[in-house]
């Protein structure tokens, strides 16, 4: 494998560059995926039937907590990549672990939020609105959960194998993924929660 030392480690081999481009294209497909979900959400948001509307079930506190946790984690993983570029393995690992912990915190809040909805009688089957609400949030949540495992695997690999062109490439791509989930969340926060809360 030819290693090009003038480039950052994650870009240093041909395969690495291919991986990064391929992942960007994959993110393009993901944008379409979430774009479709949002479109469906906007189409169905007022079709609440006998069920609650958004403003009746959304609560600002957990949503703000989730937002805070996820946005912070996105910042922290940025620090992690910075540490990786400096070749500081310890700091990198610490930042990655912190990222995942924040991600777990996010999920914990999201799950309790879902439980509250269920207790208030807004279930997956209540109305078209609740169906699409849970599906959109759930798809994002499933991405975060998958990311937790993926991130964990990468931390383990960096620990064992060090910062190599391969692990650096994987870490960098993972950070792209994580930032992307953050961007999606910003849309969720704005167009689902904020818009929903001001509906009354």
């Amino acid at each position: 494998m030819k290693v090009d030392h003038s480039q950052p480690l994650e870009y240093s081999t041909e395969q690495n560059r291919l991986n990064i481009l391929g992942f960007w294209i994959f993110l393009g497909a993901e944008i379409m995926l979430f774009g479709t979900l949002f479109t469906c959400y906007f189409t169905l948001v007022n079709r609440t039937s006998d069920g609650p509307i958004g403003a009746e079930i959304f609560e600002i506190t957990p949503v703000l907590m989730e937002t805070f946790l996820l946005l912070t984690s996105s910042f922290v993983i940025g620090l992690g990549i910075h540490a990786m570029r400096l070749g500081n393995k310890k700091a990198m690992q610490a930042f990655f672990i912190l990222t995942l912990l924040l991600g777990i915190g996010f999920l914990a809040f999201e799950i309790t939020e879902f439980i509250t909805y269920y207790e208030e009688g807004a279930t997956l089957q209540t109305s078209a609105f609740t169906s699409i609400l849970f599906t959109t949030l759930g798809t994002h949540g499933a991405h975060v959960s998958l990311g937790l495992f993926w991130g964990l695997f990468i931390i383990l690999q960096v620990r064992k194998r060090g910062i190599t062109p391969v692990t650096a490439n994987k870490s960098f791509i993972f950070s792209l993924y994580w930032h992307f989930l953050d961007v999606v969340w910003i849309f969720i926060f704005t167009f689902i929660y904020m818009k929903g809360l001001t509906q009354l």
Binding site: A29, M32, T36, C40, T48, S127, S131, T135
Partner: peptide
Amino acid sequence: IFAFPVLTIALLMGTMDRLFATKFFTITDG
């Protein structure tokens, strides 16, 4: 790349309607 994710979501919603009784494409409940 632009078209297939739309199908993914459509099929997901269709599957959920059939398996989990969600209300995406039903005539009742919105």
